[in-house]
Amino acid sequence: MSESMSVRCPACGHEHLYAAPSYPCVCGAPVAPPLDRHAAATTVTHRVWDEEWVAVRCAACGRRNQWPRPELGCPCGTTLRIPVSGAPAAGHANPEAACPAPRRAFQPMAIRTTGDAVTAVALYLRRLGYRDIRRADQQPPSGIGLAARGVLAQVDPTLRPASPGDVECLWLTAMTESVICVYFSLAGYTDTARSSADTLSVPLFVLDLTGTPRAINDPADRLDASGTA
């Protein structure tokens, strides 16, 4: 079970009992960031991608992976960043060799914000075997682009179904970078977008509000089954 500690909001002085969330390592063991009881929580005033992640070592297999940095919302409206001990920033982590183990069932996280959708996709890509997930250098016209070695993903949190142009734009960008591409949408896809994706072999996934990606075409089924292997 994840450790918990008392956290004081620096804005209103309210005390919270905070328990760190745990995430599934590739070996299947739960991993939770170690909380620093001797440091104070800080307020989140603006967001920088590199500061959203923290590197944590799995106690079971020794692998170091990047996970969302712990945060807590105070009723006063302040977002608190919870201090983590003994973990370098994600941008400076050096992931080690994978522990050979079968992939376990994906453990989703609920989607309430755009950031939650991005985190859910990052966790899913990590489950498939992709490492060093980061913001893509070239962001799409809509949504958020994520990249890792060999893959380019688009997370579309809008309330409109993705269009053929959205899918084709992602495919063209991936072609110029010689990587595969994957599309994740909250609102699904138009029929013509699905047809274009099938023609271009672009995996399409729909994200439900539990954060579970659901494959909706054959390329997505193949990717879900085989990962990066």
Rank of each mutant, 00 (worst) to 15 (best):
I82P: 01
I82L: 10
P83Q: 07
P83N: 08
V84C: 06
S85N: 11
G86W: 03
A87I: 06
A87T: 15
A87S: 15
P88W: 05
A89R: 15
H92Y: 14
P95K: 03
P95A: 07
A97I: 10
A97P: 02
A98E: 14
A98W: 14
P100R: 01
P100F: 01
P100H: 01
A105C: 12
A105T: 13
Q107H: 15
Q107I: 06
P108Y: 01
P108A: 12
A110Q: 15
I111L: 11
T113P: 04
T113N: 10
D116C: 08
V118E: 04
T119F: 07
T119D: 13
A120S: 10
V121H: 00
L123M: 12
L125G: 01
R127Q: 13
D132A: 14
I133F: 00
I133H: 00
R134I: 02
R135G: 09
A136N: 05
A136D: 08
D137Y: 06
Q139T: 05
P140T: 08
P141R: 09
G143Y: 03
G143R: 05
I144S: 06
A147P: 06
A148L: 04
R149P: 06
V151G: 00
L152E: 03
L152A: 02
L152G: 03
A153I: 03
D156K: 03
S163W: 10
P164K: 05
G165H: 14
G165N: 12
D166Y: 06
L170H: 11
T173F: 12
S178V: 13
V182I: 10
L186I: 06
L186F: 08
L186D: 10
L186W: 06
A187T: 07
A187L: 05
T190C: 02
T190E: 11
D191I: 04
D191M: 04
D191R: 10
R194A: 14
R194T: 14
S195M: 07
S195N: 07
A197C: 10
